[in-house]
């Protein structure tokens, strides 16, 4: 097991190196750079462009150097913990990203836990009561959940909350807490807001995972080891949870790594609709404005999260399945 984890850990820096190159190439891909769009904006606004200032900026950011050199300057700074400065906002990237990253992580984790906590039991109930009324009800709900775009669900829920209860459920904080420093009251306020986006972001995944768990579990329940456990005299629910479920949830666990990037891209519209201070809209804006260092940092951060997610899912899978564990040893 230790070997297994160590081997996985050793791959991490290598993967991050690859991801950082890909991120860098991606943000460089569109024609022009930030300064060209900046100059265009300024000239359009009628301001004169201070050539000296622009040259200074070009030099500071190394925009006049070759790509490879630019990359190494960039990654070198990152490694020293300097995430750079947003060209558009003229603020430190770390400052811009900081709280948004935290809130995004929190929201993602919550919706992931929500998804698993709801989907796995539904999958188990559906599989063990195949073709019963409950199973049909869950199947219908699953289809609805899969077919509803999450921003639409967000709009509907927001409308219901507003129309019925007079609640404004946008954002992750009440206005008085939005800019306040962290305190227990602010955490409590966050918790009272986070459940709605958590559900909105989690519903589609819940429906999907419930279907996967149901199908897998049905397969496993028919296998001889399930029957053997029954023949030993094990109570049904204990048997289901101990043996086939453990096999059936493995594919679910293995999707953990994709969860962050998926929510990042899939959640942007929801974040805009619900005015969530998450990182998705910031990335969108950075990409539109060619604020390449900000965009690069965000993409890289999510690569890191994906790598960590994959690592965690690999470890969880190894805990679940000795065949994986021993294979790595």
């Amino acid at each position: 097991m230790h070997w297994f984890i160590l081997k996985r850990l050793l791959v991490v820096p290598f993967m991050l190196f690859i991801f950082s190159i890909i991120s860098f190439v991606l943000i460089q891909a569109p024609p022009g750079d930030f300064l060209t769009s900046y100059i265009a904006e300024l000239t359009q606004g009628g301001s004169s462009v201070d050539q000296a200032q622009i040259d200074a900026l070009r030099q500071t950011y190394g925009l006049d150097r070759p790509m490879v050199e630019q990359y190494f300057t960039w990654i070198g700074r990152m490694l020293q913990g300097d995430l750079g400065v947003s060209l558009e906002w003229n603020r430190a990237n770390s400052e811009l990203i900081g709280e948004r990253l935290l809130l995004t992580l929190l929201l993602t984790t919550f919706s992931l836990l929500f998804t698993w906590a709801v989907a796995i039991p539904i999958g188990i109930i559906s599989a063990t009561r195949k073709y019963s009324l409950v199973d049909y009800v869950f199947t219908v709900l699953n289809y609805i959940g899969l077919a509803t775009p999450n921003f639409l669900l967000a709009l509907v829920l927001m409308w219901i909350a507003f129309d019925r209860f007079g609640l404004s459920v946008t954002g992750l904080f009440s206005p008085e807490f939005a800019q306040a420093p962290w305190s227990w009251a602010r955490v409590a306020d966050l918790m009272s807001h986070i459940w709605l986006p958590m559900i909105v972001l989690g519903v589609a995944g819940t429906a999907q995972i419930a279907r996967v768990v149901r199908a897998n579990l049905l397969d496993e329940l028919g296998k001889p080891y399930s029957e053997m456990a029954r023949a030993k005299g094990l109570p049904e629910w204990k048997l289901v949870l101990k043996y086939p479920t453990r096999v059936a949830i493995a594919p679910v666990v293995s999707t953990l790594g994709w969860y962050f990037p998926q929510l990042l891209s899939g959640g942007v519209v929801v974040s805009v609709v619900m005015s969530l201070p998450t990182i998705g809209p910031l990335l969108l804006r950075a990409l539109v404005g060619q604020d390449m260092y900000l965009a690069g940092v965000i993409i890289l951060l999510f690569s890191v999260l994906t790598v960590i997610g994959t690592l965690v899912s690999d470890i969880l899978l190894a805990v679940l399945d000795p065949r994986i564990r021993m294979d790595g040893a």
């Binding site: 001889p224 080891y225 053997m228 456990a229 453990r246 096999v247 679940l320 000795p322 065949r323």
Partner: peptide, 10 residues
């Protein structure tokens, strides 16, 4: 009847 698969592999 299927001893091969009658133990849980996990």
């Amino acid at each position: 009847q299927e001893p091969m698969a009658s133990f849980s592999p996990l």
